[in-house]
Design a protein around this nucleic acid. Structure first.
Lengths: 145, 145
DNA sequence: CGTGCAAAGTTGGATTTCACAACCCAGTGG
DNA sequence: CCACTGGGTTGTGAAATCCAACTTTGCACG
């Protein structure tokens, strides 16, 4: 996407998952839907665009396309490790939408194994403290191309 | 964006910040850049699209547009609470890009106040345990419209 | 046999969005 | 007077998206 602009992994990540429908397709796949028709129905994406996005995600290594039936040939989409690693991003995005965009109660609720309704929080993996603006400084920034 | 499809705060969130360049503009603003020209240069977005995105983000309450000079009138873009709340999402996205997309070392590195280079981790706000696929179950899902 | 259905797309054409360069306006500095 | 800066807007053409219809392979029903 961004040939010019700051060299940055956010831009690189968005080149893979930043297009329209990519993240919604991944949401459905991480919810357990693996079939084209079901993903199309549950996201609302048009079938041609969805096919293109799934191809991109397979090419990027986020999904694999697995044949689950030989005659007629039928395929399903399974998340790779990279795909499963997007789950926290989707949960954070959902939580942000719940708080600042969606009117009314959250449409989707997750239960954590500890028993509580899940509210994701981002912490420093090293010390476990929540990440706040004040506790953060940029050591090195990507150059602007 | 998604009139049809599952009712979901991820879709709602993407309607606000899911368009091309929105998140990259927010990245620059959260890095401290507040001026149109600087944001345009550092993201690589074309000026017309950037102006449209900033208007959308102001209308959605993610940014405010503040006049910092009267003659000639000049404006800067300041994140609101909702805007600052996107920081964890951007950090997670950056970390994902570092791991699975960007070749070579991470272009941008953040230092946490604990002294370590920041690697964000998403935990359950209630119990503090990392969020994994296994520890998670959907209690309620949004209906498909 | 003929009809209907399902899954996983592909195709054609209209609409919308995006990119790029050029332009505008107000003030500032030389 | 001239160039330059900041914060945009305008026009044109290219690209992406939307939507409905069609295709292919096979199964099940009557």
């Amino acid at each position: 996407m961004a040939v010019r602009g700051r060299q940055c992994s956010i831009a690189d990540a968005l080149a893979v998952i930043g297009e329209k429908w990519s993240l919604l397709a991944l949401r459905e796949i991480l919810l357990g839907e693996r079939r084209f028709d079901q993903i199309a129905r549950n996201t609302g994406a048009s079938r041609d665009i969805l096919a293109a996005r799934l191809r991109t995600l397979v090419a990027a290594g986020v999904l694999t396309r697995r044949q689950y039936e030989a005659h007629p040939p039928r395929y399903e989409y399974v998340p790779t490790e990279a795909g499963r690693a997007l789950q926290p991003i989707l949960l954070n995005l959902m939580d942000w939408g719940d708080r600042y965009v969606t009117d009314g109660p959250p449409p989707t609720v997750w239960r954590h194994s500890c028993g509580a309704d899940l509210h994701p929080e981002t912490v420093c993996a090293h010390c476990g403290e929540p990440v706040t603006e004040e506790g953060l400084s940029a050591v090195r920034l990507g150059p602007v191309r």
